[in-house]
Computed example of a mutant assay.
Amino acid sequence: MSDSPWWQPHRHADRRPALMARNRIQRAIRDWLDDNGFAEVDPSALAVSPGNETHLHGFATEMVGNDGKARAMYLHTSPEFAMKKLLAAGEPRIAAFSHVWRNRERGKLHHPEFTMLEWYRAGEDYTVLMDDCADFLMLAAEAAGANEFRWRDSVCDPYASPERVSVAEAFADFAGIDLLATISADGATDRDGLAAQLDKAGIARALHDSWSDLFSRALAERVEPHLGRGCATILDRYPAPEAALARRAPDDPRVSERFELYACGVELANGFGELTDPAEQRARFQHDMAERARIYGDAYPLDEDFLAALAIMPEASGIALGFDRLVMLATSAPSVEAVMWAPVAG
Rank of each mutant, 00 (worst) to 15 (best):
F149K: 03
Y120W: 13
E260M: 07
H99I: 00
S166T: 12
A243I: 00
K84V: 06
A308I: 06
A96F: 06
G176A: 04
A168V: 02
H287T: 14
A160N: 01
Q197I: 02
Y120R: 04
P343M: 09
N52M: 07
D252N: 08
V128D: 09
D31M: 10
Q197W: 04
Y262Q: 01
A299S: 12
W7M: 05
N36Q: 14
D135T: 11
P334N: 09
F174Y: 13
F323V: 01
P250W: 10
E257V: 01
P278C: 05
S317H: 03
W32Y: 13
V223M: 09
P250M: 14
D178C: 02
S256W: 04
L56Q: 11
V223N: 04
A21F: 06
A140K: 02
E40T: 08
M83G: 11
R325P: 02
R222I: 07
M116F: 01
E142Y: 01
L180C: 15
L139A: 04
A89R: 11
H226W: 11
E113H: 05
I183S: 03
D213L: 13
E315K: 13
M83D: 14
S317M: 08
A175V: 08
L227N: 06
R248A: 14
L179A: 04
A246S: 15
S332R: 14
L321C: 07
H111N: 09
A144W: 00
A244Y: 02
V167K: 03
G68R: 04
K85F: 05
G51I: 00
F59S: 00
Y238A: 07
D190I: 13
W32C: 06
E315L: 06
N23S: 03
D303M: 03
E62W: 07
F259A: 10
P253A: 15
M116V: 11
V266P: 09
M313R: 12
W151N: 11
G228K: 02
V165E: 08
L56I: 10
R16H: 13
L194Y: 03
G123N: 10
M1I: 05
P241H: 08
R164D: 08
L275C: 11
A45M: 15
R229N: 14
D178K: 05
E105S: 05
N270A: 02
V64Q: 01
G228C: 05
G51S: 03
R150K: 07
D132H: 06
L86I: 02
V327E: 11
A28C: 06
R22Y: 01
G51K: 01
G58C: 13
P241K: 03
R229Y: 05
L207I: 15
D67E: 01
F306P: 01
F59D: 02
T276Q: 10
F272C: 03
T331P: 07
D324P: 10
A88I: 14
T189I: 03
G107V: 13
D173E: 15
P43C: 00
E304H: 15
I29V: 15
A28E: 05
A172E: 13
D277K: 00
G58D: 13
L198H: 07
E267G: 10
I94T: 14
D251Q: 08
A311E: 12
A293F: 13
R222A: 15
D186L: 07
A249N: 11
S212Y: 14
W211A: 05
I177S: 01
